[in-house]
């Protein structure tokens, strides 16, 4: 469904992505793991159009979206949940969700979208309880649920999740990952997941890629990666 071919990204003189190729099949959860500065976030921002690519291709359902602007790419069906959550803090939870459906909001679709927002409230009941509250008053875990819900309202074919576990308590991380796994199980969502927390990510993913200094150094099924000695030593905190 999503295919990234030989993608190169430069930040000035810095070669951030060196010919990276990644693909995600329909209804698959793919994890992208690696240390700080490996290029994980860069890859997602390049796919969603927030940074310009130097060369390479991003294909969605076979259609080229490489040179499209970010706000067009959402309409093509790629929803990016950026790192650090980026909720619109002064806006209410409900307004945040409405913004998720921004590109298809007209007076005719308004009632349909209201219905979908109610669905998000059944998915994440805590958001429903706090619908009128400014999003900035939510806890980190609740904000993470909000940005995921917001992204779902854009009707994506592929969901890009960047570090959903960042800064959250272990219990909350488990909860968020359960939700992510359920998105695929219940809604058939296709997900590309970027994580520092390799164990949590691989536990729900089908396959994974390991990124180091802008290169894919390893790829395979989640089981293979979890069993790999290098991965264990570098990312799972286990002495081999």
């Amino acid at each position: 469904m999503l295919r990234v071919k030989n993608l190169q990204v430069f930040y000035g003189m810095i070669h951030a992505l060196r010919s990276v190729s990644v693909h995600v099949k329909e209804k698959e959860i793919v994890a992208l793991i690696g240390g700080n500065g490996a290029g994980k976030t860069t890859l997602l921002t390049a796919v969603s159009g927030l940074v310009r690519t130097t060369s390479g291709e991003v294909l969605l359902d076979g259609g080229d979206v490489t040179k499209e602007k970010a706000d067009r790419i959402v309409r093509r069906g790629i929803a990016h949940v950026p790192e650090g959550r980026h909720v619109f803090k002064p806006l209410s939870v409900e307004d945040n969700l409405l913004l998720g459906a921004y590109h298809r909001f007209t007076w005719r679709t308004a009632s349909v979208i209201r219905g979908e927002i109610e669905e998000i409230y059944t998915l994440f009941p805590v958001l429903g309880e706090r619908r009128k509250q400014p999003a900035g008053t939510l806890s980190g875990g609740e904000q993470q649920m909000l940005v995921i819900g917001r992204a779902l309202l854009s009707h994506p074919k592929v969901l890009l999740l960047d570090e959903p576990s960042m800064g959250l308590a272990p219990k909350v991380i488990r909860e968020i990952f359960e939700h992510v796994a359920r998105l695929r199980a219940d809604r058939g969502m296709t997900i590309l997941l970027v994580e520092q927390n390799a164990r949590a990510a691989l536990s729900i993913a089908d396959r994974g890629y390991v990124l180091e200094t802008g290169r894919i150094v390893l790829q395979g099924s989640s089981e293979e990666l979890l069993a790999n000695r290098d991965v264990q030593r570098a990312y799972l905190g286990r002495e081999a």
Partner: peptide
């Protein structure tokens, strides 16, 4: 108001 808070988050929502 979304642009005010975060331009990148606004643009990945299609704004």
């Amino acid at each position: 108001r979304a642009i005010h808070t975060s331009e990148s988050a606004a643009s990945v929502l299609g704004i």
